[in-house]
Nucleic acid binder design. Structure first.
Length: 492
RNA sequence: AGCGGUAUCGUCUAGUGGUCAGGACGGCAGAUUCUCAUUCUGCAAACACGGGUUCAAUUCCCGUUACCGCCGCCA
């Protein structure tokens, strides 16, 4: 069998969608597993909706996910160009071939006429298929229409192609993930393959490109199933080899609707901005429809590729559950080496005067605050008390841990004793333990309550990072200054 | 409406003509910890419904229902 060649063909009318990323991943996995080639093609035949910014976003997102392509617009390849808008001189030739073979014809219908046909169909509660009214126009009629200034679109003659290559009107193909699929081609109207402005339509361009790029397997979302029949017919009409098709279930939002902006992030770059790691994203999305044979869910793309079999992919839709993604993200954050974590976190710390800390202090701060991070962006709210002389005490922290006389006494005792402490990490650890023990023995106060008073005074909160580490980073002066400020003046 | 697809805990899924229907996330309970979080232990939680076929059906077949997709000179 010839070399496996698969492709991902996004349309640059938006940033790379997470669903497209999953389709790209499955293509990539299939290529890897079969020692094939993974190709990127930009489908920008609709100039109105295309933006360079989106093209860049698609490149960047795919790269960030580790889905590197073997051939594409930027890296080239033997079957380029890989951007459809640069292939416009290729398409007319095959249109002519289809016209010559009688598998296509010119259609002069206006949008209004087409609209009327559709309305009539709806009124009669029938499915709309094009009336074929232009199928047998004579040359004179065409000339007349042309003289009126009408520019024809080209339609594909479905029935003719079907009849030429199949015994009945039923067209069948064997889907890589769904098994045998079929349709009655009488239900497919003669569709437009070239618009009146000369631009190819999706269903047509895709066939020409897939054929010329020698694509062997087309893996895509199941929303393309009905397009597949049309495409197969074009492949056959032009005498091209028909590739194998595989249709993946869709990704749905938790409310079972299409995943859209109102559910949160949908583009890969949005997720990244929110603090998700691409490793977590790609791992998570692989688990939608595919499951590892050893039950181990945390896996790199390479590991998944070894274990991947397209026919074992689930053919049903799956819901995008943010909870599990978050769990996975926190897992990947925990696995990040310190140096890398520090760099990744910096973009979320721009509002703080990082130069107040030495590198050692900064490292320490990250060490003691990284544990509860679910998103990288969580760091923003986890560290305000490491900066500045003063700290804002949250009302709840005050009420719960500082307002009572008992707490005030703990704090006073802390200030008094801490004056004499040697301010090193080990020593603080020991002294603080003694401090807790002392209060427990003398008053029965729970260790956590004792610590709350100190924590609240110094960080303004009742929960946060390791207290020893905080004191160490802040230093004796700032720590005691803050503790002192939390003493009620009236109680002096 | 028509055509096509799908159906196992709330979610992602494993699995089989005879299983205690397994795992993960989430949930709940407990343990550990100066707090939050981690970590550990335990618990609850599913074969959509109705007919067949069969000694036996979650598994095979048919139907119903639900959900999704498609019906563009969008891709």
């Amino acid at each position: 069998m010839s070399e496996v060649r698969v492709r991902i063909a996004p349309s640059p009318s938006g940033n790379l969608h997470i669903g497209t990323a999953r389709t790209a991943l499955f293509n990539y996995l299939f290529a890897k597993k079969n020692n094939g080639k993974f190709i990127l093609r930009i489908e920008d035949t609709d100039a109105l909706r295309t933006e360079q910014e989106y093209v860049d976003n698609i490149f960047d997102s795919l790269k960030a996910l580790g889905l590197n392509w073997d051939e594409g617009p930027d890296v080239g390849g033997d079957y380029g160009p890989y951007t459809q808008s640069q292939r416009f001189d290729i398409y007319p030739k095959y249109i002519q071939e289809l016209l010559d073979k009688g598998f296509a014809y010119e259609c002069f219908c206006t949008p209004e006429e087409l609209e009327a046909e559709k309305e009539e169909a709806t009124a009669q509660k029938r499915a709309y298929v094009y009336s074929k009214k232009c199928e047998n126009l004579t040359e004179e009629e065409k000339e007349k229409l042309r003289a009126e200034g009408r520019k024809p679109a080209i339609r594909f003659n479905v029935a003719k192609a079907q009849k030429a290559f199949h015994d009945s009107s039923i067209l069948e193909f064997d889907d890589l993930v769904k098994g045998k699929l079929h349709v009655d081609t009488n239900l497919i109207g003669d569709f437009v393959i070239m618009k009146s402005n000369g631009a190819p339509t999706y269903n047509y361009a895709v066939v020409i490109d897939d054929a010329l790029m020698k694509i062997t397997h087309v893996i895509r979302g199941e929303d393309h199933i009905s397009n597949t029949y049309k495409q197969i017919l074009i492949f056959e009409a032009l005498g091209f080899d028909v590739p194998r098709f595989g249709h993946l279930g869709m990704i749905l939002a938790p409310d079972r609707s299409k995943l859209s902006k109102r559910h949160g992030a949908t583009a890969v770059s949005d997720f990244v901005k929110e603090g998700y790691l691409t490793d977590a994203l790609i791992n998570f999305v692989a688990l939608l429809g595919w499951s590892p044979s050893d039950g181990e869910e945390i896996k790199t793309v390479d590991e998944i590729a070894k274990d991947f079999r397209i026919n074992e992919v689930s053919s049903s839709n799956s819901i995008f559950e943010y909870d599990k993604l978050k769990w996975m993200n926190s897992h990947y954050i925990k696995m990040l080496p310190m140096d890398e974590l520090k760099e990744r976190l910096k973009p979320y710390l721009t509002q703080y005067p990082l130069d107040e800390l030495t590198d050692a202090q900064f490292t320490k701060m990250i060490e003691i605050t990284r544990e509860p991070l679910t998103l990288l962006s969580d760091i923003t709210d986890a560290v305000p008390y490491f900066f500045g002389k003063d700290v804002t005490i949250e009302p709840e922290a005050w009420d719960k841990a500082l307002a009572s006389d008992e707490c005030q006494n703990v704090l006073k005792d802390f200030i008094e004793k801490a004056q004499g402490w040697d301010w090193t990490e080990e020593n603080l650890h020991e002294k603080l333990a003694d401090f807790r023990a002392y209060w427990k023995e003398t008053t029965g106060m729970k260790p956590k309550v004792t610590m709350w008073a100190i924590r609240a005074a110094i960080t303004g909160r009742t929960c946060g990072a390791d207290m020893v580490g905080i004191l160490d980073i802040l230093g004796k002066e700032t720590s005691l200054y803050r503790a002192q400020k939390a003493i009620k003046q009236t109680v002096a």
